[in-house]
Amino acid sequence: MIIFDKVAKQYPGGYTALDGISLRIAPGELVILSGHSGAGKSTLLKLIPAIERPTSGAVRINEQDISRLPRRAVPYLRRNIGMVLQESRLLFDRSVYDNILLPLIINGHPPGDAAKRVGAALDLVGLHGREKEFPAGLSGGEQQRAAIARAFVNRPSILIADEPTAHLDPAYAAEIAELFKSFNGAGVTVLVVTHDVSLFRHWSPRRIALAHGRLMEE
């Protein structure tokens, strides 16, 4: 369970990104977060892995208040949250395989088990056989799929994505949306920030809209 309790976020300079957000996301939910640019969607998303901290209010994940989590505990929180950002943020000097392997190394997985998990993740995103290639050799959609494989390889219980289909052709975007649905089908809580809500309409996800840092509709 992810709970936002009267969460506000003000950036230095006085800009208010979030203004008293209260929200509960149940385990296994698929949530689509939409709103115009500057509505506070990305800030809301960044509060979950403690990339940003709220100015007031609390964010709780499984009853743990992560707004007050000590800095040294943050890495362990992030290991249970898969993240897909607008840009793939792949490491371009490493192969696709090594990129997907990285979270498993960080998490201390034994090499044999890690190799199996990377293989399964590559199969899942349809990049089997491309693992030795470097990200520069992949298309935009393939890069994003590699990033999704990296986010999911640790089998997190929460998956968050910030505009994962922003720069993709409609066909690639639909594939990516399918992937998120399949993860959600496996019991993962999925929270996707997107401008293109229609991509997910077939699965009747929970839709949340933000405007000027406030919840507008559910």
């Binding site: 990339i51 943020r89 490491l91 979270p103």
Partner: peptide, 16 residues
């Protein structure tokens, strides 16, 4: 720098 930032997002500790 990029690798450090990405590793941090993926849950890498400072020690790592």
């Amino acid at each position: 720098k990029n690798e450090i930032e990405v590793s941090r997002l993926l849950g890498a500790t400072d020690r790592f």
